[in-house]
Design a protein around this nucleic acid. Structure first.
Lengths: 334, 334
DNA sequence: ATGAAAGCGCTAACAA
DNA sequence: TTGTTAGCGCTTTCAT
């Protein structure tokens, strides 16, 4: 038989509601009764039942985390685990718990989100990637349920909570740096165009070329499935037609595929830059120049924004931009 | 105002309990009322409130996942994310959700476990690593709460649900294979001795040496913090005193540190084997021979065992041994 | 500052 | 086969 609030009340010689008030740290409660109640709780080893509290409160103190389950490759990307740790570190501090769910497709994401919300499982939702016209974002806006998204949503910037890197300027900086070092013909290989992060990085790439008066060659730009294999083929395609002196990529895994393709060339002097600063990027030979996007910070701010909204606290803004850092390694030192 | 079971009952012209029975797929319910109720649910867009159901049922359909948060290095180890995916894939199929929590220390693990249980958040607990005399395991046994552990607990084999690789024979096989290839003086560098997985792999190492009539040299064996840096130093220590022709490691990250140390040697002809088949192991130059431990399968079986126990289904046994596979790559081809 | 009582939404024993 | 009723454990008006 579990010990309930009633047992505590009885032992402390007060009413259940008083015990409840003590737990909730209600202001108008005398120090004397507080002490009595705390003692009774200790003596009985009482612990509030979260489920009962949730039912009465209509608040579960749980956040639902939607994780994509794309390719193996993509998945083992430490990005997600870093994000999860960031989310958890803030949430835990605030007494929130995280429920996660892997979703294979956008359809399944929608289904999971609706289930989380309809069944009243969670107070808020965290999305970890943003598509161009994201149905999840659209739905969440429509049903007006609290959520935050990692990655800038294409529409409704103001209404939506989001955290992201400034991917345009991050990639701009990479390309700019390469150009300053004397690279002139720079290719771009990226993931699916439907994700805003890819679009942004492509935009930064284009902008940098433009600002430096360099032409944009469509045949040097490839987007697609960001696996090592696909990226290898993408690089081969480019190298068959032309010979860039550098290739920037939207992910380290993409860069690895590109490096493999370059390795088969006679002239291997092509600089490569990845993105995300995965552990692998440092281990590879040659080590890979890449961009650290501070994934853990992205996660931490995501839960921060969401929890603040749930507790209707004032926030400076509805979004955060997390800084990035270009890390130069051997793959750009030719 | 949320739509409840009462609204459905009213519209369908039945009692709330009948609706409840329809939801639970109770056998003794006429097809006619079933249809009526389903229609009413559709019409009202009704979704059961899990929290209320949990309170009435004393069952949350939620599993608590305890994740260690050791070193950055360790953490970005894809092992955990693979395990998580495995857990989730089975749980989701069975209608269970997963709540995760990162714990920095064993103390915090204990605290989190007790909180999960005391507050009635979860039906069962999943532990992702096992220490030698694991306090979490001991506590969970003491309070007799359902749980499963990934890694074989040192004590109470029979009473506890667990899944693990056969780490003794996995490492035995590695060392055996090396010996068969002509390696004679084989070192061992591993993680903390407090973890059973490390103990087991060490045991397999010793056994293989013994079975092949090779001596066990304590100065060729190091255990400690399994970071790249620490492992580098451990390897340096060994190489200062002696010159093994192979070193087996309990983790790929350890092996990377060892490779760095070897790289500084004049004679680099020392074979290295890692463990866990991380993506990095294939990318490294030279690529690293390693052992695939099927982390996702470990996770899947863990949730399977736990959920079966929660639903008091018969299980063939209280534990699973998940197969391993030695993957030979360049680091052992000298 | 504290207590009584109703209710959060669902389930289950007991009746019918 | 279905309805009635009494909880599950906690919160929260409304009194006092």
């Amino acid at each position: 038989m579990p010990v309930t609030i009633k047992d505590v009340a009885k032992l402390a010689g007060v009413s259940p509601s008083t015990v409840s008030r003590v737990i909730a740290n209600h202001p108008k409660i005398s120090q004397a009764t507080k002490t009595k109640v705390y003692e009774a709780m200790k003596k009985l080893n009482y612990h509030p039942n979260v489920i009962a509290r949730s039912l009465a409160n209509r608040k579960t103190y749980t956040l639902g985390l939607i994780l994509p389950n794309a390719d193996e490759d993509l998945f083992e990307n430490p990005f997600f685990i870093q994000v999860m740790r960031g989310i958890s570190s803030y949430a835990q501090k605030k007494g929130y718990y995280i429920m996660y769910s892997y979703c294979k497709t956008e359809e399944q994401e929608l289904k999971t989100i609706h289930h989380f919300i309809n069944s009243k499982w969670v107070d808020g939702i965290i999305l970890t990637t943003t598509r161009f016209k994201d149905k999840c974002v659209a739905d969440l806006i429509k049903i007006n349920h609290p959520f935050v998204v990692i990655g800038r949503p294409e529409e409704n910037h103001k209404k939506v909570l989001w955290v992201d890197n400034d991917n345009v300027s991050a990639m701009y900086h990479v390309v700019h740096t390469l150009i300053m070092k004397g690279f002139k013909k720079i290719g771009f290989i990226g993931g699916e165009h439907e994700f805003t992060v890819i679009r942004d990085r492509l935009e930064g790439y284009k902008k940098a070329l433009e600002d430096h008066g360099l032409p944009y060659y469509p045949h040097l730009v490839k987007e697609g499935n960001p696996t090592e294999k696909q990226s290898y083929h993408a690089a081969c395609d480019i190298l068959k037609k032309d010979k860039p002196d550098a290739i920037v990529c939207t992910d380290d895994i993409v860069a690895f595929g590109v490096l493999n393709a370059i390795d088969e060339q006679v002239d291997k002097r092509i600089a490569v830059v990845g993105f995300n600063n995965t552990p692998m990027s440092a281990y590879k030979t040659p080590s890979l120049s890449t961009v650290d996007i501070n994934a853990e910070t992205l996660g931490r701010y995501a839960s921060k924004l969401l929890i603040h909204q749930l507790e209707s606290q004032e926030t400076e803004s509805s979004n955060y931009i997390v800084g990035t850092k270009y890390i130069e390694r051997e793959s750009t030192l030719l």
